[in-house]
């Protein structure tokens, strides 16, 4: 992978310590600890409302945490506006509902941020955009508007758009949950390719097959806590925690 201007070469990609998050009085994250090395691929799963989305949204400050520390690529995520901007530039995110900009073409979606955030010249931004659209296998849709594409195509564009910023970490927030079943695999294929190229990835997903194939570690969350953390083979065969077993039986048994 082409790496951007790294903030601190070496060192872990992400370190979360004692993370706390409240929505009003609701305790959404309870003292979560997590460290992710560069090139590591993490799959986060758990029942809905368990805090897994909240956790990865805290990593690029879409949600503000209330306690604990987050350091991304060695940069501390705190109230410093400069740090927040820096982290967001280096962390890409793919959303459940794609969130493509409907008033721009696919190509413009991919070029906008490199041009106005990274200040790349138009020609360079376009070349990058076309390369990544090629990579997600929809180069021919570049001039269309998002509304003209299928869900699976839109999600692939969203991945390309995030990659165009040449991030060092990619966050996936349930990228296949809003898709029709027949479109899930085309998105997962792209994610698998990405993983094989050594991208640091944190994926919230219910696709257990994907977790088994790609993940270095699977993390199970429930009620705002990390309940279990294990490599996929141990996670799926010999889960230690009762809640994990229960969850797995629900997800895998049909």
């Amino acid at each position: 992978m082409i790496s951007g201007n790294s903030t601190e070469p070496g060192g872990p990609a992400l370190r979360i310590e004692n993370l706390d998050k409240y929505y009003g009085t609701f305790h959404a994250l309870r003292r979560v600890n997590l460290a992710v090395e560069r090139g590591e691929r993490i799959v986060v799963c758990g029942p809905s409302g368990s805090g897994k989305s909240t956790m990865i949204r805290c990593i690029n400050r879409l949600e503000q945490h209330n306690g604990g520390r987050i350091a991304v690529l060695g940069t501390e995520l705190n109230d410093d506006v400069g740090n927040i901007d820096e982290i967001r530039r280096e962390v890409g995110m793919v959303f459940q509902h794609f969130n493509l900009f409907p008033h721009m073409t696919v190509l413009e979606n991919c070029m906008l941020s490199p041009m106005i955030v990274r200040k790349q010249p138009r020609a360079q931004a376009e070349a990058t955009a076309r390369r990544y659209l090629e990579k997600v296998r929809i180069p021919e849709q570049a001039m269309k508007y998002p509304g003209q594409l299928s869900g699976g195509q839109q999600q692939r564009v969203a991945i390309a758009r995030a990659l165009c910023m040449q991030p060092q970490i990619m966050l996936f927030d349930e990228p296949t949950s809003a898709l029709d079943p027949e479109m899930v695999s085309e998105v997962l294929d792209v994610m698998v390719t990405l993983a094989s190229e050594g991208m640091t990835m944190i994926c919230v997903t219910h696709e257990m097959g994907f977790a088994r194939r790609v993940a270095d570690r699977v993390i199970f969350m429930d009620s705002g806590e990390i309940v279990e953390e294990a490599p996929p083979e141990t996670f799926f065969t010999t889960p230690r925690n009762e809640r994990t077993r229960q969850f797995l039986s629900q997800v895998l048994d049909h």
């Binding site: 690029n60 400050r61 879409l62 901007d85 967001r88 530039r89 962390v91 890409g92 995110m93 959303f95 509902h97 969130n99 493509l100 900009f101 409907p102 008033h103 906008l112 941020s113 106005i116 955030v117 969203a158 758009r161 995030a162 910023m165 966050l171």
Partner: peptide, 29 residues
């Protein structure tokens, strides 16, 4: 949709970039 601004944030855009490029064009429409 709120997702539009979140996506812009996640792409590293600053407040005025988000407003000018993402929010206002859609809102005015």
């Amino acid at each position: 949709p709120t997702g539009q601004e979140e996506a812009a944030m996640a792409l590293g855009m600053r407040y005025w970039q988000r407003i000018g490029r993402i929010l206002l064009p859609q809102a005015m429409r």
